[in-house]
Amino acid sequence: MPSVKIMKNRITKTIHASEITDESVYLKRRHFLQLAGIATAGAAFAAIPGRSQADVKPLKTIPSKYSTSQAPNSYKDITTYNNYYEFGLDKDDPARYAKSLITAPWSVKISGECDKPGDYNLEDILKPHPLEERIYRLRCVEAWSMVIPWVGFSLGDLIKRFQPNSKAKYVSFTTLNDPVQMPGVGRKVLTWPYHEGLTIAEAMNPLAIIAVGLYGKTLPNQNGAPLRLVVPWKYGFKSIKSIVEISFTRNRPETSWALSAPQEYGFYANVNPQVDHPRWSQARERLIGNGLFVAKQPTLVFNGYADQVAHLYSGLNLRKNF
């Protein structure tokens, strides 16, 4: 019998289950988790008023070696505790108001320093990519975290298709900005449209994905449907939702949070327990779903993904480039 202590240790370690577990056992466990997840999702759907089962569709996925073995948060927590200011500032606003978002038809504009710019409809964007389940930790800059079973594919694989040229040093992303569908953009709390960016090296890192689903189903609107970025080693605000434009640029793009409060939010926004937010500590985080009586857990550098991404920042002063 593993003691509680051992279980706790497993949660804070970054070793992938695939590295310590026989592959077939690992896959079986993944499959079991998927089944369990889908069952939970079904129950949660029934519990959300005004949201019909028809809104999200099941997706076929293959497991990924990049998934964590940590237990995912409940579907309910993942879909009712969201920051998506286009639908309001409270955590439960997106679940309440994002129904007005129309995600089909959807097209993504590809622009800037690349050989294949143009307007692509969603089906064309997604078609060549097999969908993987990627169970990632998500660390919000507000010092809470979740474990989320995303469904998606490598951002790098998508980017290659548009053939960025040698001048492309950065990739910028833009969220839909429609005051009719998005009641929150009437208030200028951030500069709309929401925009984010990565260096091209960050974007090509295998951990960076475009997510189109979670818990084996298409994304609910409040989680950034129909497609969003997920960069698990950065604070959650970098993982931009409901993308309508991807642009390749020579210069570092401006980003929404860094524009609104440059002293508090930087371009890199890498998860770093040693670099505090000016107003709160980033050393520890509250894992959502733990209830009232579990203490915060330590935050890991690069959110536990240092092995895969630390090399991107060698020689960079992470305190200055926060």
């Binding site: 309910k76 009712t80 505790y81 955590k91 439960d92 809470w144 959502i288 779903g289 009232l292």
Partner: peptide, 18 residues
Amino acid sequence: AAFNLAGQSLGANPIEEL
């Protein structure tokens, strides 16, 4: 709400809400 009684709830992040 802290104990999810009588239809009351503190939501996904109960400590922060409390």
